[in-house]
């Protein structure tokens, strides 16, 4: 029962979504199914938050390694939750001036917005910017001309790296537009980069995408037909 009911739900909803793509009358059924998932996923936030609090409280109480980070996590979590829910610093909207909580929670000047602008935004940007450093270390460590394929990869990388900046233009600007009756400017690095990206890379991406689409179709079918049940915790019913 514990696994049969989810399997029936998964199968039914899955087939409704497929059918709704082909039959106009059922188009809205697919939308309804999506709405239900969103409601469930929203409720599951509570589950996640509960687990987060439990895990970190346990770490603090056991004084496990790195418990200080847990304390910071919990403090940040509750601070953001409270200032967001209580709309601290939010002024009422013009439409409902008498209702103190009528303004949006992320209104400019509110405490939540302050957290967003001065903590969340720079921290997120920092994490993303770290990619530049990690790419540098990966380039230094992993890009080795070990065989012919690796040499082709390296050559392509050099061309694209240069072609994606002004360096490409600067280095190969001297190549004439036409030479011996051929469009010689196709050899300029920025143009070669375009050819690599729009021809070779595009063809490869298409092949990978088709393979992925088939994999998705096959895996989805397994789930819908109940052949694959491992995501429910068991291969047995």
């Amino acid at each position: 029962m514990k696994r049969t009911v989810p399997l029936i739900i998964a199968g039914t909803v899955g087939f409704v979504l497929i059918v709704s793509y082909f039959i106009p009358y059922t188009e809205s059924w697919g939308e309804d199914a999506m709405t239900w998932f969103n409601i469930l996923a929203a409720i599951a936030f509570v589950l996640g938050a509960g687990n987060l609090v439990k895990m970190h409280l346990k770490k603090i109480s056991d004084q496990q390694a790195g418990w200080g980070y847990s304390a910071i996590t919990l403090a940040a979590f509750f601070f953001t939750l409270i200032v967001g829910m209580l709309k601290i610093g939010v002024t009422p909207s013009e439409k409902y001036p008498t209702n103190a909580w009528a303004g949006p929670y992320d209104q400019a000047g509110s405490a939540f917005r302050w957290v967003y602008d001065y903590l969340f935004l720079p921290l997120s940007a920092t994490m993303f910017a770290m990619l530049a450093f990690y790419i540098a270390s990966a380039a230094f460590r992993a890009f080795r001309a070990k065989n012919v394929e690796a040499i082709a990869l390296l050559t392509t990388a050099f061309i694209v790296l240069l072609g994606r900046t002004y360096a490409g233009v600067w280095l190969t600007d001297w190549i004439p537009e036409e030479s011996i009756g051929l469009e010689a400017d196709a050899l300029r690095l920025d143009n070669v980069t375009g050819t690599i990206m729009n021809t070779f890379n595009l063809a490869g991406m298409r092949a990978i995408t088709i393979g992925i689409a088939l994999g998705v179709a096959s895996t989805s079918l397994k789930v819908l037909l109940g052949v694959d049940r491992s995501y429910l915790g068991s291969t047995d019913d």
Binding site: I208, G211, I212, L214, G215, V216, A217, S218, T219, L221, K222, V227, D228, S230, T235
Partner: peptide, 26 residues
């Protein structure tokens, strides 16, 4: 595991006949 290999892997690793059948179908 690149692209569809990843989906194939989940069937392959399970070792179940029916899942391997889906891999062949793929």
């Amino acid at each position: 595991l690149i692209g569809e290999e990843f989906f194939a892997a989940s069937a392959y690793l399970s070792g179940e006949a029916s899942q391997l059948g889906s891999l062949r179908g793929q």
